[in-house]
Design a protein around this nucleic acid. Sequence first.
RNA 1: GCCGGAGUGGUGGAACUGGCAGACACGCGGGACUCAAAAUCCCGUUGGGCUCAAACCCAGUGCGGGUUCAAGUCCCGCCUCCGGCACCA
Length: 755
Amino acid sequence: GFTVLSPMGWDAFGLPAENAAIANQIHPSVWTKRNIVRMKEQFHAWGVGFDWTREVASCDPEYYRWTQWLFLKLYEKGLAYRAKGAVNWCPSCQTVLANEQVVDGACERCGSTVELRDLEQWYFKITAYADALLDDLKLLGQWPEKVRVMQANWIGRSEGASIRFTPTGGAAPIEVFTTRPDTLLGATFLAVAAEHGIVGRLRDAGSLSPEASAFVDRLKRARVENRFAIETEKEGFDTGVTVSHPLTGKPLPIWIANYVLMGYGTGAIMAVPAHDQRDFEFATKYRLPIVEVIRPEDGPGYDGKAAFEGEGRMVNSGAFDGLSSGEGKRAVTEALKAKGAGEARVNFRLRDWLISRQRYWGAPIPMIHCPKDGAVPVPEKDLPVLLPDQVAFKPTGESPLLSNEAFLHTTCPKCGGPARRETDTMDTFVDSSWYFMRFLSPHLETAPFQKDAVDRWLPVNQYIGGVEHAILHLLYSRFIVKVLRDLGMVSFPEPFERLFTQGMITKAGHKMSKSKGNVVPPDTLIRRYGADTVRLYTLFVGPPEKDAEWNDRGVEGAYRFLVRYWKMVEEVTAAHPVASADARPGWAASGPPRELRRRVHQLTQQVRDDMDRFHLNTAVSGLMQILNAVQDYQAEGGSLESPEALESIDFATRLLAPLAPHTAEGAWERLGHSESIARAPWPVPSPEALQSATKSLVVQVNGKLRAHIQVPADADRETIRKLALADEKIASLAAGKTVAQVVVVPGRLVNVVLK
RNA sequence: GCCGGAGUGGUGGAACUGGCAGACACGCGGGACUCAAAAUCCCGUUGGGCUCAAACCCAGUGCGGGUUCAAGUCCCGCCUCCGGCACCA
């Protein structure tokens, strides 16, 4: 009864296609197009129905033109920028990766250990939306909690204070972030990462000891090789430089420490050994002072053996003594602000999204580098910047586009002088961050999408995908939609209203994947049993949100079910070769309610509910039960020609249609319908059919099942109670005992409590 | 370490708000049909006790407690597995 848009498209740019192309000596575009054809054939073989008039592929210029347009919009808004910094580098894929694409220190794609390199790259300023992305998670009540939590953790908001420590001698202050300003008076040293600016400056000035300098090199190298390996042993070197404590003026030494990360906060921390375990371990090892400044209201506090990280009341903190941690955080921040040495600050774990890739198979970044005007955006009218065919697309660490002179050399849109094109391409996650809007006008040439169409259809009511996208695609799309909303181009804050994360089918415990070569192609099974059997079985294996290990042991069951169903249809239609089902006498099943009818209407309700809840495995079992019910009815002497049986077959056929469309369509035609079952309405159970004169209730004694009784459907509690106690079995059990209580749950059961 | 999720027959799984544990299948055992087999159909299939048999009884949803007339479901404490985050200051 709903108008549903069910489009399909191909996220077709990216490394897998390029790598496969290199391995097979085929151009990526040929390889990709061939695979699209192949996958479409498979969709058809499965009988999967999509609106193919809306098909898009992110590698078509018609599509990526607008991906480039999106880049320009972000650039205009200052949300796309180029910066030099330490980036994740995959030595095997020969490209940089976004933080989100690094899993356990390895490349999400190929599993190679990721290195750090200093490179100039393009970023999207997703951090500008950190708060909005976090806050709006509360709009996503129909997303799995798991995904919301993962995003919240990834964004990683923490409240605290930014504090500046001025070096003795008056150099630029060192800024730190802390969530515990209440422990400021317990800070006994600063610790900085090896990559921190001050380290380089000290080294350049020659004021770093040779040992400390060697340590910095070792640390940097270790992090380039694998910055994710956690060194449990704290290690550091004194720089010999001190800063003054912003409140007491006391000098505090600056140490270089291996446990301070450049990638979080400012790359420098104030160390409070009494109240932070890491600082404690470091201070203990290097005999740095430890000052207790927080004491819990009750229970043990700092004991000299480990840091006390909880909250409590401030001590050894001068004027702040006696304040609770909460009050202390505010008071200390105020005091810092008054001195101009700090302020309240919110810090995020989220980093900006690195979107440039030094690879061929992606949308070229539409920028031009002019020796005079610097980075200049390609004018909108010149889009798309076409990806040239003729390149040496071997990975060299530099973009293959550099090898195409005709592409590389261009003129500056500003001054008309000679200029070079940007040769990096965009991360494919940019392509997929907006595609759902393109489906509404896939061939529109004047805009990426039409606002009114997008506002009518979106947000997507039901999104389905793997949980592996929890912090990649699903975060990026949310970001892009928020940017477009702020540009006034869409009117909704979130792209996906409801999210269903489906599980993965594994083979021998592994994700089936092209790269592992352990994919079970459906073709063989489909050839042997037909698409409907394979569809039905696949749905029946288990709940779709769960991972499942693939085996085809039960496929026979689905096949048998369809054969039994088909035979039943043949039996009915052989006896009644009627052209129009509606002309058949008794088809409307207006007869008196019978058991079969009640059961089938009940099961119809169940199948409808199951499908709404994505419990497709039990929906299939519900259908099996309908068929079983009809066969039991037949076994008891009922006729397939009876209105009840005919109606049951009619319901079953319509419920089967989305699951096994070919079989259902064929049956539908045999049953005398001339229009496709796809246009038939969904069966509606009638309340009248669901009613029955009597109900079967369970009778328990002390919570244990002892008898079943039949009671009138409208019996009140007292009647039910009397009938239960009157039951022969119950009466005999109650003999000689006292009935302490009788719990009556109408429609369900009676529990007799005996003492 | 922190945050999520899961643990049910031989197997996949079902049981929506506490209310008949094991739906529906697979597999297995037995039977019918057949010269025989396949296919199909019928019966059985949580474990144990008792019985010629049925009826019946007891135990049972990872482990130990608890709440409740009633717990796979709720609470407390554990164990195991899976997923995410993690020297995050």
